[in-house]
Write a protein that binds this DNA or RNA. Structure first.
Lengths: 346, 346
DNA sequence: CGGCCAATGTACAGCGCTGTAAAGTTGAGG
DNA sequence: CCTCAACTTTACAGCGCTGTACATTGGCCG
């Protein structure tokens, strides 16, 4: 490509290439798409014309013609929340690997924005949607978006009408709690949020926590369930402070969320408690935050890569026309062991 | 809309609405676009048809016809880095406010991906690009994307050929350092990264730091400049540990980055130093992390909202056809005061 | 009461690409 | 040397929407 050419390069179209190469538009199109039955010599000639002109196909036109956009929407409540941004990153990378572009949307937990996301598909913007709902239940979703290739993330509100990828929250909570039991803790608290948690994942986790206590033949006391009133670290601080003030005796705490765990860490520190000597702390999500607290935070780690891969797989099947009933996919999790709740060094 | 209708709703087109309302396509289009010269009665009739049929315009077709996409690309190095994800959030919100959709791309600092972002515009995917480059210099960028409405974020490598939004790094570093001086610190270190920082923002910050020392008539010692070998908290830990081991005496440290600051906090803690009593720490970017460390982190806070607003403003001008020379916009910053470097309580 | 202008509404040609149907080519087999 | 099948290539009609050019209407003035 000569220097004068790209300086003046306006807008090269398929037909320009076709004329230059002396072939039909369709042949150029075939070359662009690597259609096999094109004579090598011709292919080369067309390729040269493409290179010389610096042709790039107009994706919008392609879309209109094919009806496919090659894009998928990823709708998350907040793109700057560590868990969501980390998960988004993995999904974006997996999608790129599979040849899709990702349109990331932020719903801010706003019901209107959540609906709008599903509408995008109707508007021909994207071929499919991966959606982490907060406000909308699955029934609502199924109603707004009948026929839209869709995969949900996060907890499944029960009536499972659409595909869904999640971890086994009960099992994970059980393991996290068991880890504390294994290291000799006996009075283990749970830090939850009670309002605004529509999807019920807190309940699942609470269930696993209780199950672990029962298996260990320990009492399940409501006293040990602390509740924060919103989804912030500050609320976690307040909840733990309140518990300490009323003299609650505990030597371990499982938190619904890394943010709460960080709040707990802070409240314990301020109260002069040593983590993990006096109280061991387990967080949830294994976000970036967990590696940077002091002490570092042991945290339940959903397999984010697996979530991304599974979500894309289900979505591709839907986009390919699969119309069956909603499917559940449980992906793995581990417990990321760090200093806030180590195993006994014995 | 009757229940039977949305169940079978396939794909309503403009022409379907037109037929239903007994008008021309263009009139429907005019109603959709709120074109003023449509008789109220007709407008109502068309609106009814739209509602009854549940019509949604096909954005792809609209784009092909208008040549505008209404989307802008936002290309960030890593969408899960707190600074970038927070900035992305603000940009996404500001863009939404102005009526654009945002296509968020992740370059992972890969030169090929960075080039691809600029190509998207040529492919008709987006009308403009907001780009935080890492590998590409401004000359490169100008060469790859002549005529693309483009706004760069981050440091300007010097030859300023395109629009650029940034903060005054020298001034900010000066203020951060001065803050430590004001609280009585006299041996202030700077934690930098030396390799891979192509954009030179570390240098700007280092400059401001040195300037503050000079203004305070303190010696500028190279000993006090610690260098991490990569952009991670761990590298920050290592750098500070090394300094402590070689017996470096310092009572304050300005870090190029919150991640480094967190590393410094950890290294200091592990070495038994008390922050801020023994050493005060200043971070940079005022990310979420800064609020969750213990002690909480004082950090240079770029005005992310202003960056978002300014970037969109410049980009809109470019998209509207402005072709002038590259413009610089310096936006504000503050110092977010927290516990790691408080003002003297005296 | 004809004429003129503004206000309304319509017809239709694209935007750039792809799918389809049909035409052209080639070469193996008879 | 012809036939037929398999392989290549082409022409062209859309995909759904918008801009342009033009047709129609009705109000108002001289």
């Amino acid at each position: 490509m000569g220097p004068t050419e790209w300086m003046t390069m306006a807008r090269v179209r398929l037909i320009d290439v076709a004329e230059r190469a002396g072939v039909s538009m369709k042949t150029v199109s075939n070359v662009v798409h690597n259609y096999p039955h094109v004579a090598p010599a011709l292919r080369q000639k067309v390729q040269n014309a493409i290179d010389e002109l610096g042709y790039r196909p107009n994706l919008t036109a392609r879309r209109l013609a094919t009806g496919k956009t090659g894009m998928i929407a990823l709708a998350m409540p907040e793109i700057d929340h560590p868990y969501f941004s980390e998960l988004s990153r993995h999904i974006a990378e997996e999608a790129t690997r599979r040849g899709y572009r990702v349109l990331i949307e932020q719903t801010l937990s706003d019901p209107i924005a959540e609906r709008a996301v599903l509408r995008d598909r109707e508007a021909g913007l994207v071929d499919g949607v991966i959606f982490h709902p907060v406000r909308m239940g699955t029934i609502d979703i199924a109603k707004v978006a009948p026929g839209t290739p869709l995969v949900l993330l996060g907890e499944a509100a029960m009536p499972v009408m659409t595909d869904h990828v999640m971890i086994d929250n009960v099992a994970a909570a059980l393991e996290g709690t068991k880890h504390l039991l294994d290291s000799g803790r006996r009075r283990i608290a749970f830090l939850a949020v009670m309002d605004g948690d529509i999807t019920g994942s807190t309940n699942q986790r609470l269930l696993g926590y209780q199950q672990a206590l029962i298996e260990a033949e320990l009492p399940v006391s409501p006293d040990l369930v602390l509740t924060a009133n919103e989804f912030t670290a500050e609320a976690g601080v307040a909840a733990v402070e309140a518990a300490l003030e009323r003299g609650l005796d505990f030597d371990g705490i499982v938190c619904r969320d890394d943010k709460f765990a960080i709040g707990a860490l802070k409240a314990l520190h301020d109260a002069g408690k040593i983590v993990p000597d006096d109280v061991a702390v387990v967080g949830w999500d294994d976000t970036l935050l967990a590696r940077y607290t002091s002490p570092t935070l042991t945290s339940v780690a959903p397999d984010k890569l697996a979530i991304a891969a599974e979500a894309l797989t289900l979505l591709e099947e839907r986009m390919a026309g699969y119309e069956g009933v909603g499917r559940h996919r449980i992906v793995g999790h581990t417990l990321a062991l760090r200093d806030s709740a180590p195993l006994p060094t014995t």
